[in-house]
Nucleic acid binder design. Structure first.
Lengths: 255, 255
DNA sequence: CTGCAATCTTGATCTCGATCAACGACGCGG
DNA sequence: CCGCGTCGTTGATCGAGATCAAGATTGCAG
């Protein structure tokens, strides 16, 4: 990781795991109170500004850890600069591979990010002593693999329109999950990414992304109150474009 | 899995884990002799012909297990029939997710395949009792995730020519690994896939794959002695097209 | 050997998204 | 308030790969 030499971070050690906002979703969510104390003792927080590099492709990664808040994008880059996003991480997602010391991708903070970090060796030691960390990490890795495969279908076979619709559906579903609300027409979605980052996510150019947004707006599928906000006007349509069959929507407007 | 009702398989129980050809690479490779005995007692073999469906997308999967021999392709399909390969499994690779009972993809035998299978519940029970199975499965899943991300870069950003070169480099590297030989000009590679399956792997059409093969043959990068065999004539060139920087080749011909 | 089906190759044309090029909108520092 | 840089939109054109359409090659059943 690149920014470990930044100015000392006063937030370090100020929070306890037991009151952590990601306590019940992160890699430590299966950990007993005793194990949590052990993690508590060696964890440390680090903050990153939007745009900062957290890990550089090919660089050694002496740390692993969880996203506490903010959004992190993982990218791979070809020599001539073509770039593809290969991971998009939110609060509670885990970065870094135990037993591997160079990163196969860049990790960039796309918003202000707080990470809860461990020295890789220390994390590995605790994981070796502990059933629950390893079990949870396996589960999270299997989920990521499943998401990666869905993403491969998108990149290999979907049209630009379908790609954008699929991306918006992921955001809608995520929002509904967090709000514990149902998905509904009228709901407002905050885009966590710039047009450029969306293009890198979808394997498109920024111009194509912009044109597809405009097209959906003109069709009445969505509205764009401002550049970072989407209002879903026709969820059934959006989900249809995305190539999903979703049986049950709450179609009452909520806005 | 779909074909569990096929005629009784005489091979069942005839092999012991201790002499298994994938003993040292599969999910059981970290298992102690005692644990191996336990797996031995509940495992069973099943054979599939080329083209047979092993698992159907969306179907319940009461089994998990390892590929003992042959090649298995995982696909995802859109409603209108567009298909993308999302996994390509060889001997020792593992299929099936513990703690999940429907498959998010089809698994098709692309050659005659022998699977070493476990009832999912039984496998989960043994994994819960055993450190080594879980550790190995985590490691294999992390490897698959890394491969999936490399594949996403290919699908999102590489040209048809680069995609085919990348695919051939994967085969060359795999071959070198198995032969414990170095990669060299002149080596012969047997394609495990038809043109159609290669196209599904690469997110292209069969015609484009064929044209790129022809182009590489005319450029002198490869030769095509028959439709399922490739002779690598210029490995450095191939690897360059694939967008990789490989420093050290054994460039002495071996054929 | 012959006929037929599956697989692969090659050619002609079309199309979606990339590229090149302006222009507009927003936000921030002075 | 203005000037400028970043981000996003829109338009015109281009091109890689898809699609449509024949053939060629291989392999197998009879």
């Amino acid at each position: 990781m690149v920014l470990m030499s930044q100015p000392p971070d006063l937030s370090q050690g100020l929070e306890r795991c037991s009151t952590c906002p990601i306590r019940h979703r992160a890699v430590c969510s299966y950990s007993s109170p005793a194990e949590l104390t052990r993690l508590d003792d060696v964890k440390f927080y680090r903050d990153f500004e939007a745009g900062q590099e957290i890990v550089g492709e090919g660089e050694p990664t002496p740390f692993v850890g969880s996203v506490v808040s903010g959004v992190v994008a993982l990218h791979k880059t070809l020599e001539d600069g073509r770039r593809q996003m290969v991971g998009l991480l939110f609060a509670s997602d885990f970065i870094g591979r135990p037993m591997r010391n160079t990163a196969p991708f860049d990790a960039i903070a796309v918003s202000p990010v707080r990470m809860c970090l461990f020295h890789r060796r220390e994390f590995e030691t605790i994981m070796t002593d502990s059933r629950s960390l390893e079990r949870r990490l396996l589960e999270m890795t299997l989920d990521e693999l499943e998401a990666a495969r869905e993403w491969m279908l998108l990149l290999g076979r979907k049209t630009a329109r379908e790609r954008l619709a699929s991306f918006l559906m992921i955001l809608v579903r995520r929002q509904a999950m967090l709000d514990k609300g149902s998905m509904a027409n009228g709901s407002l979605i905050t885009l966590p990414l710039t047009r450029e980052a969306i293009a890198e996510y979808l394997g498109l150019t920024i111009e194509t992304v912009s044109r597809q947004f405009t097209r959906m707006r003109k069709n009445g599928t969505i509205d764009l109150p401002d550049r970072r906000t989407i209002r879903i006007l026709d969820l059934a349509e959006l989900s249809g474009i995305a190539g999903e069959i979703v049986e049950d929507f709450n179609t009452r407007g909520t806005a």
